[in-house]
């Protein structure tokens, strides 16, 4: 986040007061989330709304955070503390297809390393990286609750299970 050993407080990340804009449908969707909770507890909707921001803007960006803080009448730092806690929020831009491969025990022993190796060599990146064209990001993630069909991965919100090299190839071709 911060540059190495800044000498002054002004060397922090660029922060703007810019505010994201959303279509009336999206705003309506956001309201429908807030409506689930008691009126004085609208902060409860923070996580669902962060997902909306992420879907609409690709990641949890500064204008999106500003919008949410205003929308829920909380501080930007309140949004930040929550957003940074959860692993599914992208605090940096990611590729259009976010490939998340489960690396926990069942998947690991059922062949995750081969799958990861194959995908990475095919895309020419390491886990945690994004391809130069911004199309794919590959991440290794912890158990996705699909151990019975290991190895598995999630692209966006979609589960892909019982993976084999052939299956992965087919999937990547489809995305391409």
């Amino acid at each position: 986040m911060a540059a190495a050993t800044p000498t002054s407080y002004t060397d922090q990340i660029e922060y703007t007061n810019e505010m994201a804009e959303f279509s009336p449908e999206v705003v309506e969707e956001m309201r429908s989330h807030v409506a689930k909770y008691p009126p004085e507890r609208s902060r409860s909707a923070l996580i669902p709304l962060l997902f909306v921001i992420q879907r609409e803007r690709g990641w949890i960006d500064n204008p999106g955070v500003n919008y949410l803080a205003k929308f829920l009448n909380i501080e930007v730092t309140d949004v930040w503390e929550t957003a940074t806690f959860y692993s599914m929020f992208n605090l940096k831009p990611v590729g259009r297809h976010h490939i998340q491969i489960c690396k926990t025990l069942s998947c690991k022993i059922m062949g995750e390393p081969e799958i990861t190796g194959h995908i990475c060599s095919k895309l020419g990146i390491k886990p945690g990286e994004t391809t130069a064209d911004g199309k794919y990001t590959v991440s290794l993630v912890e158990c996705l609750g699909s151990c019975g069909t290991a190895p598995m991965m999630q692209i966006g919100f979609d589960f892909h299970e019982d993976l084999t090299i052939e299956k992965v190839d087919g999937m990547l071709d489809e995305l391409a």
Binding site: M1, Q12, Y15, V76, T77, W80, T84, S87
Partner: peptide, 22 residues
């Protein structure tokens, strides 16, 4: 509510959004 904890686990840090103490 200006300063809060961010990140998780061993990466937890005390700070603010944007690094400014407002």
């Amino acid at each position: 509510d200006a300063i809060e904890a961010g990140n998780r686990g061993v990466n937890t840090v005390i700070g603010t959004y944007g690094g400014w103490l407002n």
